[in-house]
Nucleic acid binder design. Structure first.
Lengths: 120, 120
DNA sequence: GGAACGCTAACGCGGCGTCAAGGTCT
DNA sequence: CAGACCTTGACGCCGCGTTAGCGTTC
């Protein structure tokens, strides 16, 4: 079977059937995850979903969290949120000069994360 | 109805029926959570579970995560693990003098946490 | 010996992935 | 106009809280 070529020829943008095949997931599942707010693929003027490589990677992570870690959707949402905060923290550390300032920043973010799950 | 007094009269130790009433949870649920490894109440020589105040607090957190956050048991396990690491990190920061050392420590732990969920 | 504990197995509700139906875009 | 997309609703499996039954401890 020959490869399909899509009109615009753009790289790294997939319609839902292609994305689903790449990820070995059901198209309906991808739509559900969008409704849940986990991804937001761009749309064509005709409302066709276009998944970027970043969308694909994010979906691959979600799939892993569901299949291997065993999280439900609430867990996915929580993990994605915590991960974002921790990654931001990690980045911001490089631009901090003072030791005390750094400790303050770390405590701030960790406090946020722990409060977000009801600890502290 | 009068209060029951238990033989040893010790404070802050509750048998499962009392613990369940305090938490407004089903005794069987507490037993399930123990099997899941979330808590480990001490036992009497007759194998009766004795819940400490710490056990109660931990169970109260778990109840919150289930009822309000909507996590399943896999999510509980993950959150408890991440929280422990972050709390340890927060403590250890107070005993660190050097800025670079601190950054190293923070990155180390954050890296662990993120890898534990498949990110990084 | 009655009440509360222990354990294992079975029931039932709800979350979530999949299927179905009908309409629109390419 | 055939095929792939859209959306909404229904079905079915399974995780998990609860109930049930029976033996043991207090």
């Amino acid at each position: 079977m020959r490869e399909r070529y899509y009109p615009d020829g753009s790289q790294g943008l997939y319609v839902i059937s292609v994305a689903a095949r790449l990820l070995d997931m059901h198209p309906q599942t991808l739509r559900k995850y969008e409704r849940a707010g986990f991804i937001a693929p761009t749309r064509t003027i005709g409302m066709l979903r276009l998944y970027s490589s970043e969308d694909i990677n994010r979906l691959r992570l979600i799939k892993h969290l569901v299949e291997n870690v065993g999280l439900n959707l609430a867990g996915i949402e929580l993990v994605l949120g915590m991960a974002q905060k921790l990654l931001q923290l990690q980045e911001s550390l490089f631009s901090i000069e003072e030791r005390d300032e750094m400790q303050e920043e770390v405590n701030q973010v960790i406090g946020e994360v722990l409060r977000s799950v009801g600890i502290l």
